[in-house]
């Protein structure tokens, strides 16, 4: 087993654009679930909407990057309204069911054969990021040290991804220390009480849904920069990965989503590397390499269960809140 490569791969996950995308999506879920108490189980749908909006605006309409990004935001806002209008007056579980259903509808629709000219059908879209990399101000070459050595484009996508994460973190922090944040946190605790104090709960929930959804859409944009858009990536498992890492870091904490995303990917890459290494070196003989690749899902599933039972406030969350649980 090549421990150097396994460790190097794991460590490099800390800064990877995928980690940034997950962190961004998780900040969105922290706004929904952590602060407002909205059970959005369709974050994968928001990411798909963002990804396809960017790719289609670029490939289909030939729009420049900034316009495609506006499209990402607009599409996420519209999607949030579609989800929110029927459900935000209802009990929390309805939102859960409707959001997860809507995310699946999005996946079915973008992969349907009839829409292949627009969405690429089951094989998805690629070749949309030329405009984005053309904006890269960094001269060609390779920079960095150790596992953090990237090409100019590698740096560019990381800089943009993590800058978006930083902006989102600051924005959410500013909002949550304000009276606006107080209202949404109140809604998380008991929306009838907040309603009885003269706050338009429906409107606040909608604002929160839109904010977190736009962050999810932007996460979809970051997610596809290093890869193609493929409908298979936006299954429900993606949403639950995001919940797992958010619960890992702490659902209602400022840095929880970032720390959670980093730990999540480092641990996943590490365990995956070790298991695959064990299988390939013949130490573990009852698994095929393919099966070894699936173990990560089992690990995530079990981790999600353990976290939510034993540390619902996250591994770094506030001890005091533990006594009242979620």
């Amino acid at each position: 087993m090549d421990w150097g490569t396994i460790l190097g791969n794991a460590i490099s996950q800390i800064a990877s654009p995928t980690t940034a995308a997950y962190a961004l999506a998780a900040i969105g879920i922290s706004v929904h679930f952590g602060y407002t108490g909205l059970l959005n189980f369709g974050q994968a749908g928001f990411m798909a909407i963002g990804a396809y909006a960017f790719a289609i605006a670029t490939l289909g309409f030939g729009w420049p990057v900034w316009a495609a990004l506006l499209m990402v935001i607009l599409a996420s806002v519209v999607f949030a309204f579609i989800l929110g209008l029927p459900t935000l007056r209802l009990r929390a579980d309805y939102l859960a069911i409707v959001t997860i259903a809507a995310a699946e509808i999005v996946r079915y629709v973008v992969s349907t054969t009839g829409l292949t000219p627009v969405t690429g059908g089951a094989s998805g879209l690629s070749g949309f990021s030329g405009g984005f990399y053309a904006l890269n101000p960094i001269p060609e070459g390779t920079y960095g040290f150790g596992p953090f050595t990237y090409t100019a484009d590698g740096w560019w996508v990381r800089i943009v991804g993590w800058t978006l994460v930083a902006i989102a973190t600051v924005l959410v922090w500013l909002l949550m220390r304000s009276p606006w944040g107080r209202v949404v946190k109140g809604i998380r605790e008991d929306e009838d009480a907040v309603r009885s104090l003269g706050k338009n709960v429906y409107s606040y929930k909608m604002q929160s849904l839109v904010l977190g959804g736009v962050l999810g859409g932007l996460a979809g944009f970051v997610f596809i920069l290093p890869r193609a858009v493929q409908p298979g990536n936006y299954g429900t498992a993606l949403t639950f990965f995001i919940y797992t890492l958010l619960l890992l870091g702490g659902a209602a904490t400022v840095f929880g989503p970032i720390v959670g995303a980093m730990i999540f990917w480092v641990v996943l890459s590490l365990s995956n590397g070790i298991i695959v290494g064990l299988v390939e070196s013949g130490i573990v003989s009852f698994l095929t390499p393919d099966q070894a690749g699936q173990i990560r899902f089992i690990i995530v599933g079990v981790a999600l269960m353990l976290l939510v039972i034993f540390r619902p406030q996250g591994i770094f969350g506030n001890k005091k809140e533990l006594s009242f649980s979620v």
């Binding site: 498992a237 919940y243 699936q294 899902f297 995530v300 599933g301 999600l304 269960m305 039972i309």
Partner: peptide, 29 residues
């Protein structure tokens, strides 16, 4: 056990999501 611990329903629901994910990939294997 979750009921006896007084774990809230939203948490219990997320536990079933974790279980679903884990069991599904046990099936794959």
């Amino acid at each position: 056990p979750l009921r006896s611990r007084g774990v809230k329903l939203v948490q219990a629901m997320i536990v079933t999501i974790g279980l679903s994910l884990a069991v599904r990939y046990v099936f794959v294997i």
